[in-house]
Design a protein around this nucleic acid. Structure first.
Length: 411
DNA sequence: TGTCCACTGGAAGGGAGGGCTT
DNA sequence: AAGCCCTCCCTTCCAGTGGACA
């Protein structure tokens, strides 16, 4: 028995509708992946030879977010480990290139998942790429087995670094005497292969596997499968899962979002102290999910990106529903002056706008206005609440009051 | 048909900040 | 301490461009 403290009442009072929260996380790998048996078999067939120390082909897996690519690979990784518990014949390594997206970071991560000897660990910065690569190659070769390296969100790293890193990794086999390395790339960019240079394309895409988006029915099955273990009978109203599935199917069949939605609905119901989960909970969850995701992104923006975003917001508030780069930049310079920070160049601001577009916070498309030039047409695509979040930023609190100093006419 | 605007986006490079090696 | 390396954020320079207008 623990001493009562300030949290005690919450521990007691909170009614839990969810038996096991972990099951509803999208990172959870379930025992059963509905509607992906065929894909699993396809991949297993390709990589099974690794268990007898034969090198499997490299694979490229293509499919939109939330189509089960990562879950399938994690599942296969687990099963592979079961088939070879001592990792005598093969080792399975998973790297998410969205989190580690530099060549150094990727090699560092691979190395430290493989290298067990602490004296040979690679420092997280300081070495040249050549040095890590040769150390890694040596270590891999000593082990005399197959290494399966999964690179998730492979396009992320590619966007920043080109394909040199993939070239290294796919050509590592030429240096090896005893071991072999297979690469499994996962991407949600269907045009990814077009971006690769020919030398990589043939190597990386020895086998290609496409993951189609889930249909409404399939999403429902997935949700039912998870709900079965996560909730007791009668907690979920009948319409909840079909509704979640329908909402997410509209947006491209992303199972991750469907799960987020269900989890958030349960959260909201719990917090309200309700005894079951209804369609209304799903509705408010939908708003919250979107807002949370956007809020996280906005919070992590760099100072200049925030100022650029604020400039776009301010212009929008003053009735300019669309604007061009020049409009944003002049407002941006004004704000920089207001908070006393030196502005960056328009060239760079152009890039920041493109980044904001990729994050889905603004819409920016290049458009020609004839004689009036060719530039980006920019439009805010963010809910109002985010705007509030940004404005509450300490840095910007006095910005409304700021008046620029009188222009002195100096040439 | 050619002009011309307001940028776009590629390329190269700098420098600060992280850290290793000798 | 000096000499490296890698990454991030930024600048400078500049050729290229879609399409309204003369």
């Amino acid at each position: 028995m623990t001493e009562p403290n300030i949290f005690t009442q919450y521990l007691k009072k909170r009614n839990t509708l969810v038996k096991n929260k972990k099951i509803l996380q999208s990172s959870y790998t379930p025992e059963n992946l509905p509607h992906r048996d065929d894909k699993i078999n396809e991949i297993v067939e390709i990589i099974a030879p690794s268990l007898s120390k034969d090198k499997p082909s490299n694979i490229l897996i293509i499919g939109k977010t939330g189509t089960g690519k990562t879950a399938v690979m994690n599942y296969i990784g687990k099963e592979l480990k079961k088939a070879d518990p001592e990792e005598e014949n093969c080792t399975f390594i998973y790297i998410n290139c969205e989190i580690v997206d530099t060549p150094y970071g990727i090699l560092y991560n691979i190395a430290n998942q493989i290298i067990s000897d602490p004296s040979r660990r690679i420092p997280f910065t300081g070495w040249s790429l050549d040095k890590i690569l040769s150390e890694l190659t040596n270590y891999i070769d000593e082990k005399n087995k197959i290494f399966i390296i999964v690179l998730d969100e492979i396009d992320r790293s590619f966007q920043k670094n080109g394909d040199d890193i993939f070239y290294y990794l796919t050509s590592i086999n030429q240096e090896l005497q005893n071991s072999r390395v297979s690469i499994i790339g996962i991407t949600n960019n269907t045009k990814f292969t077009d971006l690769l240079s020919t030398r990589i394309k043939s190597r990386l895409g020895e086998e290609k596997i496409i993951f189609p988006p889930y249909s409404v029915e399939q999403l429902q099955d997935i949700l039912y499968e998870r709900a079965k273990d996560a909730f007791d009978d009668g907690i979920l109203e009948e319409a909840v899962i079909p509704y979640c599935a329908a909402l997410t199917a509209q947006e491209g069949g992303d199972a991750r979002r469907a799960l987020d939605l269900l989890r958030m609905s349960a959260d909201i119901a719990e917090r309200n102290g309700d005894s079951n989960i209804t369609e209304a909970h799903v509705k408010s969850a939908k708003n919250k999910v979107e807002l949370d995701a956007m809020g996280e992104i906005v919070k992590t923006l760099t100072l200049h990106s925030k100022i650029v975003l604020l400039s776009i917001i301010k212009n929008t508030e003053e009735g300019q529903s669309t604007m061009i780069t020049g409009d944003v930049y002049s407002r941006y310079k004004y704000f920089c002056e207001a908070i006393g920070t030196p502005p960056i160049t328009q060239r760079r601001v152009g890039d920041l706008i493109t980044e904001l577009d990729m994050l889905g916070i603004v819409h920016a498309r290049v458009k020609s206005f004839g004689r009036a030039g060719r530039t980006k047409e920019i439009e805010l695509s963010t809910p109002v609440q985010i705007v509030e979040l940004l404005k509450s930023d300490e840095m910007f609190k006095d910005i409304e009051k700021y008046k620029p100093p009188k222009q002195t006419t100096l040439m």
